[in-house]
Nucleic acid binder design. Structure first.
Lengths: 240, 240
DNA sequence: GGCTAAGCTATTGTTGAACAATCCCACAAG
DNA sequence: CTTGTGGGATTGTTCAACAATAGCTTAGCC
C-alpha cells in the first residue's frame, strides 16, 4: 500500500495545493445552477431557439425538477440576458434585434481594446493562449469542422480580453459571448460566419507578437465592424 | 369633455409613442425583484454589513415573504456579486479584499476610458449630465452633505460611461458601482473618501469641454489611482 | 489536558400541493 | 367590427414537509 504520509505537514510536492485547485471543479453547486447551465447550453446550440416559451410545467417535468427550483434557474438566465421574463406570461428565449448586436459589438470593442492595450505592457508570455486559439481554429478549418472553428474564434477573443488580467472583464466577456450566440443562430451557416475571420485573427496575433499594438488594434477594429455588419444584415434578411 | 379621437389612427402628435415609452415605468416587477432591490439598498447603506449571514427564516419573516421567493431574490444578488452563496451554509454579504478593489478599478479604467474616448466624437450636448453631476457635488459639499457628495460622484462617473451610448456598458457600470459600495463601507468617513475628488471631477469636465480628451484621460487616471489606493490602504488598516 | 468520535440541532436544499391573480382565447352581443 | 364575458391554462406566491448538511455539544479515550 501507499506510504504513511501526514497530509497536514508541509511537503515538497504540493499535493494539497493541487487538490485545492480542483475544489471548485467539484461543483458543489445545487440543482438550480446546474439547471441553468443545461438551459444555457441548449439555448446556445439552438435547441431552444429565440422566442421559445419556457413553460415551467413542461420544463420541470422534462428535467425532473420542481417549479421553484426552475424559477431560481430562470433568475440566473434573466441576469445573463439569455432569457426575458414577462410578468404573468412566463420566460422566453431572448430574440436579439440589430440594435442589440450593435451594442454587443460596441462592448466588444471596449473590452477587447482594453486587452489589446494591456498586451503592450504585458510580456510575450501571455500570448500563448492567443497562438493556441488561432492554431486550433486553422486546424479545425482544415478538417472542415466549422462549429469548432466558431468556438476557437470565441476562445481567441476571450483570450484577447484575458490579456488585461481582470477576472471581472473576463466574466463580462464570457457572458457577452453567450448572449452573442443568440445572434449567431440567425446566420445560415457557421462557415460563412467564421471562415472569413481566421486570417484576421492570425494577423492580430502576428502583429501583437511583433509589438505592433496599433496595427493589431486596426485589424481588430475591422474584424468587429465586418462581423457586426454581417450578422446585422443576416438578421434583417431573416426578419423580413 | 375631450374631443373624439381615434387613437388607432395615425396622428400628427405621437401620443401612443410617448405612452409606449412609459411602458417599463409601470414596474410590473414581482415580489422577488422588489425584495432584491430592498436588500441591495440595505447592503449599500451598511445596514447589512459585509460578512452578515442572510438567514432565510429571519429575513423571510422580517420581509413577510416565503423562503422560496427569498431564494429567488438571492440569485439576483449573487449574480450582482453583492452576496456569496456557500452551499448548505447560506448566503453572506460579500466582503471585498484589496484584490477585488484593484480589479474593480481596473474595470473602471476600461469603462470610463471608453466613455472618455467616445466624448471626443460625440457632440457637446452629452456633457450636460457631467456638468450637472459636478455642480451637484459641489453644492452638496458647500452644504456639508457628504453622503450626497458621494452619490454625486458616482453619478458623475456613471455619466462618463454613458458618453459611450451603450446600454450594456451603462448596466455594467451600475452593477460595478453597487459592488464598489461594499468597499466604501470600510472607509471611516464619506468626507475623506469623496472630498479630494471634487476638484478632479471638475477638472475632467472642464478639459472635456475644451476638447482636451488626453488631458481629461490623464486626470481620470490619477483619480482612479488615488481612489483605489486610498480604499485599499483603509481596508488593510481595517483588516489588521 | 487535549484529541477524536458520536449525536443533536438548526439551517439549507428541494419537492409537492395549494390558491389567488393574471393572461389568452373563444364566443356572444351590441 | 368592436366590446364584454366566460373558461381554461399558466404564472406568482405561499406553506408544509422531508432529506442532507454544517456546526456545536458532549462523551470517551489516550
Amino acid at each position: 500500500m501507499g506510504q504513511d504520509v501526514d497530509l497536514a505537514r508541509p511537503s515538497a510536492d504540493d499535493t494539497l495545493g493541487r487538490l485545492a485547485a480542483d475544489r471548485d471543479l467539484l461543483g458543489r453547486s445545487g440543482t438550480a445552477q446546474r439547471v441553468a447551465e443545461v438551459l444555457r447550453d441548449r439555448i446556445a446550440e439552438g435547441a431552444l431557439p429565440p422566442g421559445t416559451r419556457l413553460s415551467e410545467q413542461a420544463l420541470g417535468a422534462a428535467l425532473g425538477v420542481s417549479r421553484n427550483t426552475l424559477r431560481e434557474a430562470f433568475r440566473t438566465l434573466v441576469d445573463g440576458r439569455l432569457v426575458v421574463h414577462e410578468m404573468n406570461r412566463g420566460v422566453f428565449v431572448r430574440t436579439l434585434d440589430p440594435d442589440d448586436v450593435n451594442d454587443i459589438y460596441a462592448v466588444r470593442r471596449a473590452l477587447e481594446g482594453t486587452g489589446l492595450r494591456a498586451a503592450a505592457t504585458a510580456g510575450p508570455v501571455h500570448l500563448a493562449a492567443l497562438h493556441a486559439a488561432v492554431a486550433g481554429g486553422e486546424a479545425a478549418a482544415d478538417a472542415g469542422d466549422w462549429p469548432e472553428v466558431g468556438t476557437a474564434d470565441l476562445r481567441f477573443h476571450r483570450a484577447l480580453v484575458a490579456l488585461a488580467g481582470s477576472p471581472r472583464l473576463d466574466e463580462y466577456m464570457t457572458r457577452l459571448l453567450a448572449e452573442l450566440r443568440l445572434a449567431f443562430l440567425a446566420m445560415p451557416s457557421a462557415r460563412a460566419l467564421h471562415e472569413p475571420f481566421l486570417r484576421l485573427n492570425r494577423r492580430i496575433v502576428d502583429l501583437l507578437g511583433a509589438g505592433d499594438t496599433a496595427g493589431a488594434a486596426a485589424v481588430l477594429e475591422r474584424y468587429l465592424d465586418d462581423a457586426c455588419e454581417m450578422i446585422c444584415t443576416a438578421m434583417r434578411m431573416d426578419g423580413a
